[in-house]
Design a protein around this nucleic acid. Structure first.
Lengths: 137, 137
DNA sequence: TTGATATGTTTCACAAACCTAACTTTTGAT
DNA sequence: ATCAAAAGTTAGGTTTGTGAAACATATCAA
């Protein structure tokens, strides 16, 4: 398979949001995407078209939005990262939940697959080590 | 002092680059900024004007560029983060130098001051703990 | 001093993502 | 079945950051 252009941070966020809605409400609607991402409805339409062009979602005008297998794969990867990073910031670093969430949202796009894997291994080791818990202030 | 708009990631990168050049070559020139950031000279001019408007650099057409105290303060903060994060990825996670550098460059903008502080404390604790070194693969 | 070359600037164009406001389609209550 | 409200789309703007290419200035060797 040819190496595709990497997705923009924004498009990745859309995929992630669509996955969440799909999971929680069985179906993703334009309005809910807009609300969740704090973006106007009109802007969402344009981005949905882009995602559809990239075969990442199934999109028909005025219809529901669903992830294609490829889109879902990417969305799940982002979601996993998000969850992991948020947990790291909140539980390990004791950062406030909201901030942890925001920070995770920024960083989930920044690491390569390999780097993220190493980070996960690292946190796993830390978690298994009782005397390396800093008291974060 | 009133809370200013936060700088864009891009403008922060410019400040960081200017600081590096200023340090290494005593003076920052447009061409060197362009080369280091892999951006065309013409684009640099526009961004220098923005930085000057924000009182972060001293800029005269056809002149050298220097950081104002305020600009230097910000640049140093970014640089510190960069160095710290790069070190974390390279030394602790054993990520390849180049990748570590790239990743740091993305992430240095993503954390709040507080969060970054907690992260630093965390790494310090880890470093002091001999048996929590994962063998990253 | 002069003029080629390097450096800096300007202008115009462009892509990505967004917004606003008007318009269209769908939905749901009656 | 009808028609208002809700949801979705479209068209036209805006902002940010960039590139290309022409133009302006500075520098330096002869």
């Amino acid at each position: 398979m040819i190496n595709k252009e990497p997705l923009s941070q924004s498009l990745e966020d859309y995929l992630e949001t669509i996955l969440e809605l799909q999971t929680k409400k069985t179906v993703a609607r334009s309005k809910d995407i807009a609300e969740k991402m704090d973006i106007k409805r009109g802007s969402v339409t344009g981005m949905l078209k882009k995602l559809a062009q990239n075969n990442l979602i199934n999109y028909e005008p005025y219809g529901y939005v669903t992830l294609t297998p490829e889109g879902k794969k990417i969305a799940m990867e982002i979601e996993r990262r998000h969850i992991f990073l948020k947990d790291f910031f909140a539980r390990v670093l004791k950062v406030d939940e909201t901030i942890a969430d925001q920070t995770a949202c920024q960083m989930e796009h920044a690491m390569s697959k390999q780097t993220f894997q190493k980070f996960k291994n690292f946190v796993k080791t830390i978690d298994a080590c009782p005397n390396c818990r800093p008291d974060n202030n």
